[in-house]
Amino acid sequence: MMTIRRYLAAALCVATVTLFPAITVAQRRSGPDPIGAAHRLAPTLTRPASAERAPDADGFIQRWLVLEPIRIQIRSNAQLNDSFVQKTVKAEYFNNQYAVIPRDRDKVTVNGIELMWHAIDTSTYHVNLYHFARALNKPAFNILFWAVTIVDCPEEIRDVRLAVGSNAASIWWVDGREVIGIYGDRHMVIDDGVSRRLSLKRGQNVVRCAVLNSPGVSDICARFLDAEHKPVKGFIVNLEDAAR
């Protein structure tokens, strides 16, 4: 039923515009850059109002820098296989794309289009990228999102695993090392993709991801699990003091 789901997704798009009038009103009022006028990006997303943010009770990271979506030609959901995702994500879209720690509202130019980084907090365990794109009046289908966050640890934490879910395919890096790739037209499930054991060093650790989506909703969630599969919560997210 995946092909049929494409049409359902289009219908969902229409329905969403109806369901979130506040967003569309904000967009009409404030034009292409709604953020200056409205702090509330989307039902679940807000602009950070504090210097740092602890993970939630289940260890999920709730603060991210997300780049406005890059349009990608995706012929069908079936195209989101391993090789397509790897090849697409690993094209160079902007300078220093695997290392940059942008500031909120930094801009990059991709294929002649200016795209902005947005710092966001999510009120839920996951980041709804569909909300994010729609609120910014950006395309929500056939797109690539880049997101990055900084996990600040008071001490080294060994033998943890990054555990993510994404809709749809995604690739993840921790401190520059690729640790997870999950492919296909998949739905976001907690702890769907899990890295091998890794160490979070004392201080700042960079978690980065690229998410490819065809039609339909798009979101991510991420946390670290310890050796007993329990959520790691002994860190904070601080995007302000990140070394850039």
């Binding site: 695993r161 555990a163 999950i182 702890d191 769907d192 993709g193 899990v194 890295s195 091998r196 054991r197």
Partner: peptide, 8 residues
Amino acid sequence: AVGSSFAT
């Protein structure tokens, strides 16, 4: 099984 998609 660790998570849905990984084994260790």
